[in-house]
Design a protein around this nucleic acid. Structure first.
Lengths: 158, 158
DNA sequence: CCTCCCGAGTTGACACGTCAACCGTAGCAC
DNA sequence: GTGCTACGGTTGACGTGTCAACTCGGGAGG
């Protein structure tokens, strides 16, 4: 009876670790995003989109291919592309070979902005994350993270 | 020279661990929030606010006290309280003893909704987080998380 | 041919967050 | 009194995210 009940809900300690985990990860993410925003005027969403485009042939991707590559819903992507297009970071052109389907093309301005952002972004990752942890801690985080992914059936990372 | 450059940017492997970490934490947070939303019609923001109120005298807190307790900006809190008030989860009444200052009072409906949400919420934490990890992994996550907090000067958790 | 559905993408409504500007009252200087 | 500033809170604009409804052009099936 006691044994059965004990497994239903987390203990105080487990709950504390959980909150520590989510809140810290969120804080780190926010801080990195804020820094990227101020140093390069790109949001992390912008960065993800431009990263994918920068690695594509002709700096061009089909909207649906882009969506699946960065794992965004198409509606989210559509909204975000609209905002980025308004800022001149990319263009949307309907592509010839498929009547449906839109090619997303990074503009030169977009490429330039992205290029100027990579080093600050990577430096921030090192300063805020890598520098905080020993090699062992990094390995442990990775192991636990993978356990979480497996448990939630998220599919392996990358 | 090489040595100097190597410390500036993270390695591929460190970058992979970083992305794995943030993306997974984000996915877990989102999944828990979605589950809470669907099972109890409360967002995680609602839950945090109601949790604080439920632990307060008279189910009442000064707006500023609430803000500092859950570490939200006052503007954010004001917007959120407006939405929650519209749904009848709480009321805002200007309190007598301080001319400035607003008392936030959880309504009975709010208390009921919150109470009905606690068990599903805790169960979800167990199923999605605690169950995924061994005791060792949990301890390692906690240790690394605390290292992150110290490094970012976030102040100890709780 | 007509209808019905499907797939790619868009749109609108809304929740949520941040930033900066604002409002009203209280104290305080003079 | 008149003016200043500080405090507590609100508001508006805007970026961001989700959901559901919509468009639009093809194909089947009949």
């Amino acid at each position: 009876m006691k044994r059965a009940r004990r497994r239903v809900l987390p203990t105080q300690e487990q709950l504390r670790v959980w909150r520590n985990y989510v809140e810290t990860a969120e804080a780190v993410r926010l801080r990195l995003a804020g820094r990227l925003q101020h140093e390069t005027s790109l949001s992390s969403g912008d960065y993800v989109v431009l990263l994918a485009l920068s690695e594509a042939e002709q700096h061009t991707l089909r909207s649906s291919a882009l969506a699946s590559q960065i794992e965004w819903e198409r509606s989210r992507l559509s909204h975000h592309l609209g905002r980025m297009e308004k800022r001149g970071l990319l263009r949307r052109v309907s592509c010839a070979d498929d009547v449906h389907g839109i090619d997303v093309v990074m503009t030169d301005a977009g490429a330039e902005t992205f290029h100027a952002a990579t080093v600050p972004h990577l430096r921030a990752v090192r300063e805020m994350f890598v520098d905080a942890l020993t090699d062992d801690q990094l390995a442990h985080i990775d192991e636990a993270t993978n356990a979480l992914r497996r448990h939630l059936a998220l599919g392996p990372h990358d």
